[in-house]
Amino acid sequence: MLEIKNLTKTYDGKLILDHVNLTIKDDEILTIVGPSGAGKSTLLRCISGLEKIDGGTFLLNGEPFDPAETKQSEAVIGVVFQDFQLFPNFTVLQNVTLAPTTVLHVSAADANREARDLLDRLNLNGKEDLYPYELSGGQKQRVAIVRALAMHPQILCYDEPTSALDPDLRQEVAKIILGLKQDGMTQIVVTHDMDFASAVADKMLRVEPV
C-alpha cells in the first residue's frame, strides 16, 4: 500500500501540486485524470522519483520512503513512459535484461529466461532479437511494460498509455493492465482519456489545475 500525504510541488515558483493526498491499496488500479496542465504527469514523476518534492510524505506499507532516493536494489516503482523510451541500441531482449543483470546482478541465463517468459505472456514471442525501430507502437509499449516488470516493482506507473497508440489499441492496453491486476500488480495510470480511465480504474483521482 502506498500513501501520499500533503504532496506539494512547485516549478520555478509556480505551484503545480497543492497538498495532494492519495492512497493506493495493493492490487488496485488507480487512474489519475484531469485536463492538460493539471499536474497529472508531475504527480506521476514525483511518485516515480524523477522530480524532487517540495513537501509531503510517502509511506510504503506504512514505512516512510523517498522515491527520489531509493537505493539501487530497491526497485519499488516501475514506469512505462508515454513515448516508451526503449533503448534503441539494444534488442528487445537486451532492453528487458539490461537492468536486472546490471542493477540486480541476476545471472544472464536467469534474466534471459524470465524475460522470455514475460515477453511470451505479452505476445511478444519471436520479437526478442528485433531492435526497437523494428516494432510497432503497441509492441514497443508492451516491451516497455515487460522491461519495467522485469525489475519486480511493487507499483507500476503508466504515463498516458493510450496517447501514442492507434485508438483501436486502447482495448488491448486495458486488457494488459487488467491482466496484470489479476497477477497482483498495483498500478497507477495517468490519462486524459476518460473512457479508458473508467474501463480500468478501481479508483479515480481527479486533478484540477491549482
Partner: peptide, 21 residues
C-alpha cells in the same frame, strides 16, 4: 532526456547509463 529518465527508473547508476545507453 527520456533516455536518462527511463534508465533512472530502472535504477541504473549515472555511470552505467552513460556507458551502456
Amino acid at each position: 532526456v527520456g533516455q536518462y529518465e527511463s534508465a533512472k527508473v530502472l535504477r541504473l547508476s549515472y555511470g552505467q547509463t552513460l556507458r551502456k545507453i
